[in-house]
């Protein structure tokens, strides 16, 4: 359906925006390495089913591979910045102070409690859903502490938030047309969208109405 396609495309757009900008400008200003590392973990644990070869469709399989590849490439580019632009890299690391163990630990516990089957694949899948819902926190934490964000960061987070928001009408659509109600995805998806909603509000007020971007 249209919501799902648009959602996936804005997800892809967010990663492309990030990749292209970092590649072109060699700048990692305002980007949280921790959030990016969490996304690598999210994609690798979620798409483990690629290894079982029970692939859903060409689209589904290709997108999964692209997401894993692109998230790894982002890390590579950030690491390249370490040698090319050591000052900017150090500055980023100094501001990227969120403790990710407080996210990974609880997500692992939640995955053990909420899952469809007690198998490695299902536990990893559930873990990836919980982790994705909170993976943006180091990035938002960084933003709220610095109070300012470059256009790269704002556009990146906007595209990511849009992807999450579009998945909600997708689930409503699928509930009515296919009788599909997949509680884990829906719950973690709503949680994730809630984390973005404050950002959306500020984005609307500042970026769309033309003022600079600042978080309170």
């Amino acid at each position: 359906n249209i919501f799902r396609i648009l959602g996936d495309l804005s997800h892809l757009a967010s990663i492309v925006i990030l990749l292209r900008t970092v590649q072109k400008t060699r700048q990692v200003d305002g980007i949280s390495l921790k959030t990016q590392l969490l996304y690598v973990l999210v994609f690798c644990t979620r798409y483990l089913d690629l290894l079982t070869f029970r692939w859903k469709s060409v689209y589904n399989t290709l997108m999964k591979m692209v997401f894993i590849g692109a998230s790894v490439r982002v890390i590579q580019l950030i690491q390249e910045c370490k040698t090319r632009n050591a000052v900017a890299y150090k500055d980023m690391m100094a501001r990227d102070t969120f403790q990710i163990k407080y996210l990974v630990g609880p997500c692992a516990i939640l995955a053990l409690v909420f899952n469809y089957k007690f198998t490695v694949l299902e536990l990893c899948w559930s873990f990836s859903l919980w982790l994705e819902s909170v993976a943006i926190l180091p990035q938002l934490f960084m933003l709220s502490r610095s109070g300012k964000a470059g256009t790269l960061t704002t556009h990146y987070i906007f595209a990511l938030g849009l992807y999450r928001a579009l998945y909600i009408p997708n689930w409503i659509w699928r509930y009515y047309t296919e009788g599909r109600l997949e509680k884990l995805s829906v719950f973690t998806g709503l949680l994730q969208t809630a984390l973005y909603s404050d950002f959306f509000y500020i984005y609307y007020k500042k970026v769309i109405k033309g003022a600079g971007f600042e978080l309170p």
Binding site: K56, Y116, E182
Partner: peptide, 10 residues
């Protein structure tokens, strides 16, 4: 039922 759908989204 839920398991059947579990991995068909990204």
């Amino acid at each position: 039922q839920e398991e059947k759908f579990a991995h068909d989204e990204l």
